[in-house]
Write a protein that binds this DNA or RNA. Sequence first.
RNA 1: GGGAGCGUAGCUCAGCUGGUAGAGCAAGUGACUCUUAAUCACUGGGUCCAGGGUUCGAAUCCCUGCGCUCCUACCA
Length: 486
Amino acid sequence: MSMEPQNNEYREQRLQSMKALEEMGFAPFGRKYDHKDLARVREEFVEGETVRVAGRLLMIRRMGKMNFCTMNDGTGRFQAIFKRDELPEAQFAAFKQLNLGDIIGVEGTLFTTQRGEKSIVCKEWTMLAKALEQPPEKFHGLADQEEKYRRRYVDLMTNDESRERFFMRSNIIKETRKYLWDKGFCEVETPILQSQAGGAAAKPFETHFNALDQKMVLRIAPELYLKRLIVGGMNKVFELGKDFRNEGIDRSHNPEFTVLEVYEAYGDRTSMENIIEGLIPHLCDTVVGTRRIEYGEAKEIIDFTPPYRRVAYKDLVKELMGEDWFGLEFPVQLEKAKALAREKEVNLELDGVETELMLTHEIYDKMIEKNLRQPTFVTRLPHEFVPLAKACEDDPSLVDVFEFVVGGRELCPGYTEQNNPLEQRKALEHQAGEDTEKIDEDFISALECGMPPTGGLGIGVDRLVMLLTGCDGIRDVVLFPQMKKA
RNA sequence: GGGAGCGUAGCUCAGCUGGUAGAGCAAGUGACUCUUAAUCACUGGGUCCAGGGUUCGAAUCCCUGCGCUCCUACCA
């Protein structure tokens, strides 16, 4: 657990081996080495061809005059063979000084063993980097969660699965950009360092700007700046970047996380539904290789083939509680909910629940959303839950938004954005309460210049990656998750 | 925030009602020219997370601290 260099028998031995190599004329830390990726060597394997490869020694099977090593260069594993017959005497002798974890370059000829293992028979090898630290056990790899997160490089070098997951994350981000660029969206960058935090209800991280002697915050959402761009006539924009929220850490929350926000002028929430219905299948096709993804411990199959179900919040509630639900008296509703909860063995939290709205929402939370396994847009939510969004045209008590639910969890919301500056001010003032300083006057002022009707979308990229890689913890898809100082 | 659990060799883990610390892998030496979690023989390796307490005696029991994990609550 110590972060200081190990000072043990391994380190001593390796320092000695380093010295021995130097004395034999092998510089323990090499320079640029032109080579072919191991994955390509395997793919384009030609018996007898001479190639140069490089990588870390993962396993060494010493048999005296013929030795087998498993190398790993980050693209894949490959076997290298060190035979006395095939190597200059000095090279064969120096081979004995190699340890697990060392990085070497190998020049040799491609060869298939009797057991059919594609290999390279070494003719000449080069020391590229000596490892002074002993790598983790070859079979289990690094298993300790804490150590995996704190020393991700050790996790990456030993666990192929972990490394592949992060390459997959990189591809998801690349293909997300590509998809949006191809649809005519413009990628922008807005301030992360802001004088006031807006666009979400969350505690910001605070910092101090010395030159201006001014308190600053890290953004909690890019929303308000992106809408300014819509006002300015950048009609289709997106930003892919980090938000920071000064709140707790758990399996689905990291204080710094990656978000994608998309805004489309002259659109509405349905424009955003179309983007999700296009983007997610695109990611499935280009990155995952299937639209049917295994999810959770139960290995439940989630099918991302569009179109996705669209259903109004109230219709979902009626499906469960009966067509007449919203006409019933509150005490009747309460009894009915309790009875159903008992039947389904669900624990409803009813303390302080005094209205139809609150009760209905508790029912939705505990008994409806969890059962929406396949991709679903839940639309037409009560105004109270999303106070800043634009009301539905035909019913001012509802807002024209969706929550996109997959696997029983909300993945992302989409909005028909509020473009009436008077309504927006009212809503913001209501939210801010006493704290009127919290209102971003410049943002209101932007709206007063006239913002076209607009659809907006915000996706937690980490959670999207979790879904597509079948992980159930955010720390498994963030390279260096936030940890307490050890 | 509330609850439960964990921290032992480089790594993965055993260690019962308290009696001077164990295995596998890894390492060192030796044998072996088709191994692949190679095999075989011998050898070395520990601040039992840190600090305090109980005890003749603590990895083990108690307290405090640090870190992690799980459940639960909160979270546009």
